[in-house]
Amino acid sequence: MSSDKSGFEPRIVAFLCNWCSYTGADLAGTARMKYPANVRTIRVMCSGRVDAQFVMKAFAEGADAVLISGCHTPSDCHYQEGNFKALRRYYLLKKMLPQFGIEPERLRLEWISAAEGDKFQEVCTEYTEQIKKLGPSPVKKGVKNG
């Protein structure tokens, strides 16, 4: 993948909950909707499973952005309230990320239901465009430890 500004292809890690967003992504697939290959998905059972460590690890491994997606609040969560946990962690992380030099826009939270294949496609497309404009993650060009 080219890293020069014009041909920059961001790498976005998407944590998708099994019941809504991953199924929504699946629906996008069965409906033959294309979304950018920049989005690389990791299935978790619930957005409440997403540990802030996963997000930090993803950035440390060179992700240009991280997308967390779960079932719609307040009542769609397959596990009743896992999505609220994700929501809370998201805001706290978003406050902390700039302290590590990472733009808060590089973390995004979305609610995508199992029926919203098109929304999944839209979010992926739009977010990829947004990150392309924002440029590569500072982690890659940043000073390595030492």
Partner: peptide, 28 residues
């Protein structure tokens, strides 16, 4: 759901098939 696993500050709670180590390996 694994919410407790994500929240466990000791890493003592883990989720079968979705252990921290497995997800870290996926991220990598």
């Amino acid at each position: 759901c694994g919410t407790c696993v994500a929240a466990c500050p000791s890493g003592a709670a883990q989720q079968k098939n979705f252990r921290d180590s497995q997800i870290f390996a996926e991220i990598k």
